[in-house]
């Protein structure tokens, strides 16, 4: 085995690299959704927010030459979408799932609409941390070429976990999410808190989109998202509304996604569609294995419409 021949070791390395590269958008969107759902609302529209975040981040980075300005713009745009969802759903009898689906359409539509002039230009990429400096192997160096947003995402997951567990804000969000009546009895304004939580959740999703367009794959076009936003919302249920579990779910999902190309590159070419479907099969399998009819939705916020 020489410097570039890894043989079958290439597979775990590719999965590690893939997990790091591909998981970040899933992580950010699912963290945003955890925040929203813990407050008792579901925002299915984060796919649209993600796509709009990808477009606006890329556009601003193109215009200003500053990728971080793009990330900020994506977060801002995302929080606007979240705010609209939050405000609209604060009206009585408005269905949050349906509004989410409409906003998915609107976000995607607006992104495509305003994104046309930005398909061609090349925007500056976000910087990466070279965590593989200790190795001589180019594969290891590449796998550990980590975007700054990935550790930021891990930190955010830890912070959110700590926030829900140990802070006043976290408690407020949880109370509002578990029982509107209890929250009112405590003198809280549930709609207000939910709107803020949804807006903050939107900002997370916007950043997830900026990662797609500004780092990996690092370009804006209309096919940039293959449903990452929608899948990430599903991963929240899978992660049982726990931010740390979201990190695990995102890594698992990203790593499983790298399996298909990696297997082909070491000469296992058959049935790649089925290997590409591995992340979905695995998630479904784990979901079935860990569910049980008695406690249908352990950990679910009480006011969440899909688990009521």
């Amino acid at each position: 085995m020489n410097g570039t021949e890894l043989g079958l070791w290439a597979i775990p390395l590719a999965i590690l690299g893939g997990a790091i590269r591909v998981s970040t958008p899933f992580l950010f969107v699912s963290l945003g959704e955890v925040l929203t759902e813990r407050s008792g609302r579901i925002n299915l529209g984060l796919e649209g927010t993600l796509v709009f975040g990808a477009m606006s981040g890329y556009a601003i980075a193109c215009v200003t030459g500053l990728p971080w300005a793009g990330v900020l713009a994506a977060a801002g745009a995302g929080s606007l979408f979240g705010l609209v969802h939050g405000l609209v759903c604060s009206l009585p009898r408005v269905n949050d799932i349906a509004v989410g689906i409409s906003l998915m359409l609107l976000g995607t539509g607006l992104a495509y609409f305003f994104g046309k002039p930005f398909i061609q230009p090349v925007a500056p990429d976000l910087p990466a941390l070279e965590l593989g400096w200790w190795s001589d192997l180019p594969q290891v160096q590449a796998a550990l070429r980590v975007n700054v947003l990935f550790p930021v995402g891990i930190l955010a997951a830890l912070l959110l976990w700590w926030m829900f567990r140990a802070t006043r804000i976290g408690l407020l969000v949880r109370v509002v999410g578990d029982s509107t009546d209890a929250a009112r009895a405590m003198g809280l304004r549930p709609a207000f808190i939910r709107t803020l939580a949804t807006a903050a959740g939107g900002a997370f999703a916007g950043v997830g989109g900026a990662y797609l367009s500004l780092f990996y794959p690092g370009s804006w076009n209309e096919g940039i998202s293959s449903g990452q936003g929608l899948m990430a919302v599903a991963l929240v249920i899978f992660a049982r509304w726990n931010p740390i579990a979201c990190l695990g779910a995102a890594l698992l999902f990203g790593g499983a996604g790298a399996l298909g190309p990696a297997l082909q590159s070491v000469g296992i070419p058959d049935g790649y569609y089925l290997f590409y479907a591995m992340p979905y099969v695995m998630t479904l399998g784990v979901l079935i294995a860990t569910s049980s009819p008695g406690r249908a939705m352990a950990g679910a916020p009480g006011e969440l419409s899909i688990s009521k």
Partner: peptide
């Protein structure tokens, strides 16, 4: 020449992953 099929005509993340896998393979 190593070939990797993505299965779709347009699928950004998968194309990037395939390219990385090729680069990893030397």
């Amino acid at each position: 020449c190593q070939v990797i099929f993505t299965g779709e005509w347009s699928l950004a993340v998968k194309e990037a992953e395939a390219t990385n896998a090729l680069a990893d393979a030397g």
